[in-house]
């Protein structure tokens, strides 16, 4: 597997086979690549050091000094919960949609139309999150009010349904987040699906498979790693989304399973944006930075899980 990407031995591949040739191009290229990698690591170490330095007062402070007055866990716990709930709702909605849209563009729509449609979707990635926030409050919120009110009347027995219905509920936030992460997920999926080797597809069709069978046999297995990568990029964005959540979500509860009412837990990123400007006290500021650190780890765990899933299926990707 890994042998294929190995450079050929210089002597064997070089036109002048007599003496070993040192190619400056190769050296420069390898150097540049390594330097870029190292630089990213250095930046990250810098950010991590900065975060720890800023969060330290909260980590060592007396629980009563921390924001909320009951210790770090008390303050950050509901935020982690809220972050996960919002991101999960977004992912549940966006994951099948993004695959469907990407398939439609790559394998169903006529080629000209597909290009135009792909373009429209990409355009959405350009909309700043403030706009998604305002649009969510004024369009999506009222639109979902009917469904939420109906659910509260008829599905009250479900633990996550409860009144009064609110256009600023967790469900609305999750739906808007789903729309926000659709473009990046769709774009990755689309590119991956388009890269499916033509031969695999034709082989499948030649054996008499229907279009769906061909997709299931050739396209989806080939794209699995890419689909998961795209989902993780989307999830990362949903976890870290700040302004849209801050504008839409009505935050006035701690842990609650209910996603249709105005009493919701906050999310980490939105909480930082909402509380940072007026956080007056040293330890309070540090608490917010510490919650940022937690978001870091949440993202990390999510990504590690995704990497693990992808690595189990590595045989299907092209390069390794």
């Amino acid at each position: 597997m890994s042998t294929t990407a190995q450079p050929p031995a210089p002597t064997a591949a070089s036109p002048t086979a007599d003496k070993p040739v040192v190619r400056p191009g190769d050296k420069i290229f390898a150097g540049l690549s390594t330097a870029s990698g190292v630089m990213i690591l250095v930046t990250l170490v810098g950010v991590a050091a900065f975060l720890l330095w800023q969060a330290w007062p909260a980590l060592v402070a007396d629980p009563s000094e921390v924001r909320g007055g009951n210790g770090l866990l008390w303050y950050i716990g509901p935020l982690v919960y809220g972050t996960l709930v919002a991101a999960l709702i977004a992912l549940i909605i966006a994951f099948p949609l993004s695959i469907g849209i990407a398939l439609f563009i790559s394998h169903y729509a006529p080629r000209k139309l597909a290009a135009a449609l792909g373009y429209v979707i990409d355009l959405l990635a350009a909309v700043p999150s403030v706009v998604f926030g305002l649009w969510g409050v004024s369009v999506i919120g009222p639109m979902l009010m009917g469904i939420q009110a109906w659910s509260i009347d008829n599905l009250q027995f479900l633990p996550f349904i409860g009144g009064p219905a609110s256009p600023k509920s967790m469900l609305v936030t999750g739906a808007v987040l789903a729309i926000m992460i659709l473009p990046i997920m769709t774009a990755v999926n689309r590119e991956v699906f388009l890269q499916t080797p033509r031969l695999h597809e034709e082989a499948s069709l030649a054996l008499g498979a229907t279009r769906w069978e061909m997709i299931r046999q050739a396209v989806l297995p080939f794209g699995r790693s890419g689909i998961i990568s795209g989902a993780m990029l989307g999830l990362g964005r949903a976890l870290g989304e700040t302004m849209a959540v801050a504008i839409i979500l009505s935050i006035s509860a701690r842990y609650t399973p209910v996603v249709t009412s105005p009493a919701n837990p906050g999310t980490i990123a939105a909480d930082i944006a909402l509380q940072f400007p007026e956080a007056s006290h040293g330890a309070h500021l540090a608490t917010l930075v510490a919650s940022g650190l937690v978001l870091f780890f949440v993202t990390l765990i999510v990504n590690m899980a995704a990497r693990y899933i992808v690595s189990r299926r590595a045989a299907f990707s092209g390069a390794n």
């Binding site: 600023k168 009505s250 006035s252 509860a253 105005p262 009493a263």
Partner: peptide, 10 residues
């Protein structure tokens, strides 16, 4: 705002 359960606006 210290009272839970209301509607929060940014």
């Amino acid at each position: 705002w210290p009272v839970p359960g209301g509607t929060g606006g940014q």
